[in-house]
Write a protein that binds this DNA or RNA. Sequence first.
DNA 1: ATTAGCACTTGAAGATAGGGAGTGCTAAAG
DNA 2: CTTTAGCACTCCCTATCTTCAAGTGCTAAT
Lengths: 348, 348
Amino acid sequence: MPSNLPDLSDRAQQLLKTLVERYIEEGQPVGSRALSKGSSLSLSPATIRNVMADLEEMGLVSSPHTSAGRIPTVSGYRFFVDSLLTVKPMKSKQINKLRNDLGIHERSDNVIESASKLLSDITCMAGVVTMPRDNGVSFRHIEFLSLSQSRVLVILVTNEQEVHNKIIHTSKQFSAAELLQAANYLNSVFEGKDLVSVRKKVLMELIEAQKRMNQAMIDAINMAHLAFQEDGDKNDYVLSGETNLMEFAELADMGRLRQLFEAFHQKRGIIHLLDQCLQVQGVQIFIGEEAGYDPLGSCSLVSSTYKVNDQVVGVLGVIGPTRMAYERVIPLVDVTAKILSSALNQKN
Amino acid sequence: MPSNLPDLSDRAQQLLKTLVERYIEEGQPVGSRALSKGSSLSLSPATIRNVMADLEEMGLVSSPHTSAGRIPTVSGYRFFVDSLLTVKPMKSKQINKLRNDLGIHERSDNVIESASKLLSDITCMAGVVTMPRDNGVSFRHIEFLSLSQSRVLVILVTNEQEVHNKIIHTSKQFSAAELLQAANYLNSVFEGKDLVSVRKKVLMELIEAQKRMNQAMIDAINMAHLAFQEDGDKNDYVLSGETNLMEFAELADMGRLRQLFEAFHQKRGIIHLLDQCLQVQGVQIFIGEEAGYDPLGSCSLVSSTYKVNDQVVGVLGVIGPTRMAYERVIPLVDVTAKILSSALNQKN
DNA sequence: ATTAGCACTTGAAGATAGGGAGTGCTAAAG
DNA sequence: CTTTAGCACTCCCTATCTTCAAGTGCTAAT
């Protein structure tokens, strides 16, 4: 979505760049005088004022009031990020520390959580990591336990050690023996298979079942169909360091802040946004209203996808005020995504 | 912890009562004039000022500055709550609505969550409910799955349908068959038993095992010992409506608010506090610093215990500013605890 | 014991003035 | 034609002052 880039003289670009950098650093409108000193160009404030007037006309900067300096608009940030930004690559020492901190965890939940926490700790903003999608998840083991009436507790183990459970409602009441038999059958047939293909196969067999199978198998397949149905709530994420956001002056308004926190809580809107990030591989940035989600009003999101077995399965990122140090956050998010990918891959 | 109650003339009590009520309602220091009109006593402001001076001397009220009215101190609230408060019992219509809203949920997690959410929604403050303790939890089913090396994934089903899982490290590597055998043994011996007594029994057998059992049983018991070890992180709670707290003027300070939210997040201190509430059956109230936990500085907690099978297994409550409508919150918490108890009992 | 009267204190809200930062415009300089 | 110096102007921020209402404590009268 790179909106058609306005073309600017080198000088204007240079000035915009230092303006944005300066504003990110100081958080206050920057005036012509400051720019004159701060930029390598040696121009008088007056000249710079002319350029600023042009930039303002193009909608890249704006001034809060007539006698203040200029601050970047969303388009200004966008242009900056797309064309002017010089990212500061992370030092390998830091990368190693990161890799180390993300270290060995018994369960993948924990890796996800650490990643989120790491992102928030390092940036002093909010870190977010989505739970990995089912893609590439393999079937390990299934178990049925009968509850009252015709309800059955399903315990499904995937990826060696991840335990999911849910309750399904069956058409009739099964005995413990029948349930055991069904589980045994499914375990023997599907062990180690990819969950997506398992679902597909179950669906196929569901159709053919009536013809050539015995009742026990039909029951098993029927139950498998229910058991493997995608959990809607699998769409989830781990958020850390929300409270860091309370420190930023631009988010100090209680009303907005509350709206933001409630959005984090309800998850819906945020998940929708993160899903969009999932579509494009690699780092992606939403600045302010670009996200199209009001509660994130004056926030930016820097995200990147992470993979398992070369399949994109999730997104991780940092949420902070639009005025954030993109040149540091971007490489951090990028590297963290890669480290997380490799950490998750080791498991299998 | 009812600190030795100061004895006050009826008149002073009456005045303190209306003062606190008034302050809770309006949120502003209340002066002698207002009290003179508001109370049923017909006294002149001047007389009331004398009484107020006494109350201030006793530390029950204080004035923010010389020419403001008085506001209750913590001790003032305490006295009010202990001796003066007239609770407004809930209308049975409301109770029924509550009972209904807490309705039927498949899994007890959900009941807990709804309860918390209900508390926060109704009070417009924060609701909190601890997860039920293990007391009275019964063993339903256990399952072992071998992972790499000597690690074993344990899946434990309790109370008919609650699934717990963890990874244990065994002394040697077991085959799938051995694990199955061990699980079968444990399932047959312990099915339906109370988890606490199961733990006890396992411990006893652990000692006697060497003598009179075969290797398979020894292995089973050894693993059971690891598998049943109490999860430390079972100490958990569900919190709702934190964001409601952002609306209160007395908590408007970002710094304090952040501290509070972080306390919610870390859980440790809050759990400690809730554990204290667990000791005393029924409704309990901590006002401000009484809690002995700084982040809850100007908050109060109204809590009550809830039970399963006549055993106290958890606490639920409301957290809000010290200036809260105790006369409504107290019965609400009380009733909710009872409804939750009965909802949980229905399950078994 | 209660009350009226009164001087006094204090914070909240508004008005006022000064200063600083920065602008846009114009006209001169390069 | 571009750049720059100069200048009047705008706007916000802060500090100071004033006024006002609310409420107090004290004293003296009831």
